[in-house]
């Protein structure tokens, strides 16, 4: 009886609530659609603009180091060097930032007392607020020259490692991938640290106590519980950082010297990344076919970043499935 009464009287009210639900649902669906549609449209825009130039290209787009787009009648552009510089600088950044970020995140979550951890974390986050032009100026004017002796030492003693062999620009001033990679590593440190910190913090207390009760030291506890638990998040955070390093423009543009010869696959190369190449030519985007060459480079960067993100999601998802 009681159920019937409550069941028949409030439909008007519940209708009102459903209208609210409907509005909210279309709002959220709409916002999500905007994102998906814009990404699709960006991809489409890049493709449409790039195809005519790619068709007019007289050399192999993927394997040629040459970039000459001045003569519309004789377009010669290839992305090999852009890809090499982009990948080398980003990987160097990742190789430096990943262990550092893990150390900082573990220190903040499992060593430092919470009272001090908060301001410390705030300082790290502040790094993300420094404009990239400032990082670029600092890298070109301060860090590059300061790193010159280090680069010279590595070049002289480790030249048998291809990555440390002679590059295509002079070592003086430090306008090479080595400097750019280190600056990039500082720029991506906050994002990797922030993501890792959050996942490391969420390690279930039950598991931490389980390890400690077995007689694990702090580090052993971290190794048996925190790291396996946070692994996927840490990797996902690192991939976000990698995405940022791949796309970083102005800092790299300021730091790297332009090279006259093609890349030697060394950290001491100069040249351009995808993003800095496009930015450097931005004032001259008047001729559609020449511009299309740069847009084609942008398309490659777009697809490349997309692939990196997809890979990160796959790795993160696999880690989660294994943990549950």
């Amino acid at each position: 009886m009681a159920e019937e009464v409550t069941g028949s009287s409030p439909p008007a009210k519940s209708n009102g609530r459903r209208r609210g639900d409907g509005v909210f649902r279309s709002m959220t669906t709409g916002s999500s659609l905007v994102i998906v549609v814009s990404i699709g449209l960006i991809g489409l825009f890049l493709l449409i603009q790039a195809v005519p130039s790619l068709n007019a290209n007289n050399i192999n787009f993927f394997t040629s180091p040459e970039w000459a787009t001045g003569e519309v009648g004789n377009l010669r552009f290839g992305i090999r060097d852009l890809l090499v510089v982009t990948v080398l600088s980003s990987l160097l950044a990742l190789a430096i930032a990943m262990p550092l970020a893990m150390g900082i995140a573990l220190f903040l979550t499992h060593y430092l007392q919470p009272k001090l951890a908060r301001p410390f974390a705030y300082v790290i986050d502040l790094l993300a607020a420094v404009p990239s032009i400032v990082f670029g100026l600092w890298g070109a004017k301060v860090l590059g020259p300061a790193l010159e002796p280090v680069a010279t030492f590595l070049n002289e003693n480790l030249a048998w490692v291809p990555l440390f062999s002679d590059g295509n620009v002079s070592l003086s001033g430090g306008g090479n991938i080595f400097t750019a990679g280190i600056v990039l590593s500082i720029m991506i440190l906050p994002i990797i640290t922030a993501v890792s910190r959050e996942v490391f913090r969420q390690t279930p207390v039950m598991q931490i106590e389980g390890a400690l009760a077995l007689g694990a030291t702090r580090w052993e506890m971290i190794r048996t519980t925190v790291l396996p638990f946070g692994r996927s998040g840490y990797i996902a955070g690192s991939m976000l950082g990698l995405g940022r390093a791949l796309g970083e423009t102005v800092a790299v543009l300021i730091i790297l010297r332009s090279a006259t010869s093609s890349s030697t696959f060394s950290f001491f190369d100069g040249g351009y990344t995808f993003a800095s190449k496009i930015a450097s030519a931005a004032p001259e985007f008047s001729e559609p076919l020449s511009t299309g060459a740069y847009i084609a480079a942008g398309l490659v960067l777009f697809v490349f970043t997309f692939a990196v993100n997809a890979l990160a999601r796959y790795v993160a998802g696999r880690g989660k499935a294994k943990a549950s």
Partner: peptide
């Protein structure tokens, strides 16, 4: 101390990745 005194908790807490 914890190596010689074992402990079992309220909720089972095996290490999930092991």
């Amino acid at each position: 101390v914890r190596r010689t005194i074992g402990m079992v908790f309220q909720r089972p807490n095996p290490f999930p990745t092991m």
